[in-house]
Simulated scan of single mutants.
Amino acid sequence: MPAPLPSPASIRRLRAWLAAYLMIAVLAAAAHLRPVLQAQSLPTAAARWIWKPIDQLDHNPTAFYAVRDFRLGSPTARARLMITADEEYVVTLNGKRIGAGAFEPGAPLDVYEAGPLLLPGGNRLLVELRSGDGTGGLLASLVDEATGRQIVGTDDGWRILPAHQLGLVRGWMPIGAGEPAFAWGYPPIGRWGSPKVSAPRPLLGEEMGPPLPAAAMLPLSLPAGLTDGRPPGSPVLYDWGRTVEGYLTLEMPPAKDLGMALLFTGETPPDPLAARPTAAVLVMPGEPEWLDARPRRFRYALLVGLKRPAAAAVRPVPPGRVRPPRPIRDRVFGIQGPPLRTPVEDEVWSKLQRLPGAARGKDL
């Protein structure tokens, strides 16, 4: 006996369900493709904001490498690298440091002419990233200026490596041991906004002059009442004898753990209890040298919290390159709030307070 034919009402219901499923699929595809299509109109094209995989509750200071290998049949004559990172970065292409910088809301991307450093065959783009509270982001895009084609951009194909090794920077050590980067997504995202392009900056090696070592290094004791003597991490004051402008560099024996210190700079010897730190110093495990991400103007530099002895020098930059420091917003609706310390400040001072002989009642 033949099966009964479906009723017209059943056929209409089936068509309605199929139409609903098709509409849901179309809307889902549109929601997925919309940010991809929007990104194509941005200067960074398909690049996404990336970072190392972290726990949402992890706010510990961090420093690490984000690395990407790529191949070229023949290097392009002109290639533009657009990059920014929150909080700060130092970028290396095929073993050559080409730039450094720090994120500022609303500021354009840093742009470097990277074509002369590209090689036929294998290439390595490596970015040292630092964050005082553990969170942040990197956005970078390398573009062939002749065709507008993106050669490489930040995405989850990048690898994250937590410690410095010379072979990683020079390019002969494989990066397979690293973990995949976590992609936050396409811009604009949160406070990072839509990327804008600035005029090209000089490459770091062309901009910086020969190192100017500090004229004097004076080990200091910790503030009275904190502890006796000079335990590891005690302040060290560097004096150049005159005002200098440039990137501060520190050389030190490599260590297996992340190095953390507070940097104070000024035209007079800084008081670490009266002034806010100029910057946090985060030294990757295994790293023998730290380069500041910003050029600064100062005569004195005070370092607090670094357990390893450090030799200090300044790589000078042309006049006018140093920008004034950003103002610290410590008022809300005109009301002065309590002083807030960064996680790096908390870590450095708490370690010194935990030292034998430290006065427990002293709150720095």
Rank of each mutant, 00 (worst) to 15 (best):
G233D: 05
A183Y: 09
G148W: 06
D271L: 05
G153M: 05
P324M: 13
G193M: 09
L250H: 04
R13E: 14
V111N: 01
H59M: 02
M173K: 13
P269E: 13
T278P: 00
P187S: 10
A46H: 10
I160C: 03
A199T: 14
G157K: 05
G115T: 11
G229H: 02
K351T: 14
V197Q: 02
P324W: 13
F333C: 03
Q336M: 10
G229K: 00
V26I: 14
G137C: 08
A255S: 11
A312Y: 05
Y21Q: 04
S7Y: 06
D228A: 13
L303Q: 02
E251I: 01
A9G: 01
R78Q: 15
M284Q: 12
D144T: 09
G106Q: 07
F182H: 08
T243L: 08
S74L: 10
S10V: 08
V67T: 11
A79Y: 08
G73T: 13
A261L: 03
G153Q: 07
L138S: 07
D55F: 03
K362E: 08
R149G: 01
D239A: 08
G122Q: 15
L237G: 04
G185A: 14
D58G: 03
E287P: 00
P188I: 14
R78L: 09
T278Q: 10
V281S: 01
H164T: 08
G95W: 06
Q165D: 14
